[in-house]
Design a protein around this nucleic acid. Structure first.
Lengths: 201, 201
DNA sequence: TAAATTTCCTAAACCAGTTCATTTTTATGG
DNA sequence: CCATAAAAATGAACTGGTTTAGGAAATTTA
């Protein structure tokens, strides 16, 4: 058990080291604030109306964050596989009730950081201000690109783009989840998959 | 002239003070890194293929950032009026060639921070790591909400939402810019404006 | 203040993508 | 290993929103 945890923490530490350099003491302190959580397929770690207390790093497995709208339709705002963070971001940073579900798509191992621990961490080790700034900036740039794709491309182009950029993800997530991420119906995605749309080639 | 600049810097300093507390010396240092730029209507401060060197704070006037796609269609990714920052974010943070235009919608006064100056600022005054973390987190949460709106709402609902949330902006920007922000054609926006769509009321 | 240009409005034809209904395939737990 | 549920495929009918094409209003410029 301890061995397994060591491996998980080491992976996260390596991820952190890509952005900031910590002393051994700082690393130990950081790790002391974390907790490891295993979630089964379909289990939710965040639900609407509850305040989201954790930011979760995916060590293995995969997760998705989605909204259920007033017509009972699902809309996926994010996937997370290894080395990505996931949470209901709005709920987490403002500590207000969530609107999203965050659910495991398969058996998943997470490393979770509590909101209060995160605040404390940034005060105690200011380098983490930098760390969270950098990863948030990257997430923002990523999301802006996605927004632009959704504004400027057709469903088919969005599908092609996703397949090129994230072939791994497309194989691991259910098709209805991918459709709701790309902003199209499952039926239409199915047609695209079996390219019964444009007979260009 | 000096008076005018003082007013501009004071507004920005007040904005900064909402998130971090600076000493007078830090404030002076910060201000020394800034420059004020006036832009005329339709003038672009960022263009595709050029690296975006500045982050711009809007003191007065209004700006928008947009993409021109392969069909020569415009897609607005952001507006900025007083107290907002604007830039081609991806180009700025990665210092890579821009893909967007950032254009003045009216005569506008900007305060600009150079990329290298920003890096230096964060090293010299680490509080700014915190400042940029916080504003980036808020921008991210905002963009995620917008992404969810675009995935889950109809054109009409998006229009209504925007009008409720940003009545000031809708009056100041041209209709084609708003349509391209909301992800619909100008013709359809025009129909919605004169509500010739749903005869519910 | 007239001319030029840009923005805005209108309406009919059209189409990308949805909805609905049904079938086939794949997962899953007991 | 079967039973049953969940996910994916398919096709026909439909619709929200676009396209195209025009003309009216407003803004800019000379």
């Amino acid at each position: 058990m301890q061995n397994e945890h060591t491996e998980v923490y080491d992976t996260l530490k390596k991820y952190i080291a890509r952005h900031i350099q910590l002393t051994e003491e700082e690393e130990r302190y950081f790790v002391s604030l974390l907790r490891i959580t295993m979630v089964k397929k379909k289990q939710c770690i965040v639900q609407p109306d509850f305040i989201c207390r954790y930011r979760s790093y995916v060590f293995s497995g995969s997760m998705r964050a989605y909204l259920i709208d007033s017509n009972a339709q699902e809309h996926t705002i994010a996937f997370a596989i290894d080395d990505w963070w996931i949470t209901d971001y709005t709920s987490y940073i403002f500590q207000q009730p969530a609107t999203l579900f965050v659910e495991a798509l398969e058996e998943t191992v997470l490393v979770q950081l509590d909101y209060n621990a995160e605040q404390l961490l940034m005060e105690t080790v200011p380098k983490f201000e930098r760390f969270f700034r950098i990863i948030t900036q990257r997430s923002f740039a990523f999301l802006q690109q996605r927004m632009l794709s959704n504004l400027s491309m057709t469903a088919e182009q969005r599908y092609e783009l996703f397949m090129n950029k994230y072939p791994q993800i497309s194989q691991r997530v259910p098709q209805y989840a991918l459709a709701s991420y790309l902003g199209m119906s499952t039926e239409y995605l199915s047609k695209l998959r079996n390219n019964r749309i444009s007979k260009k080639s």
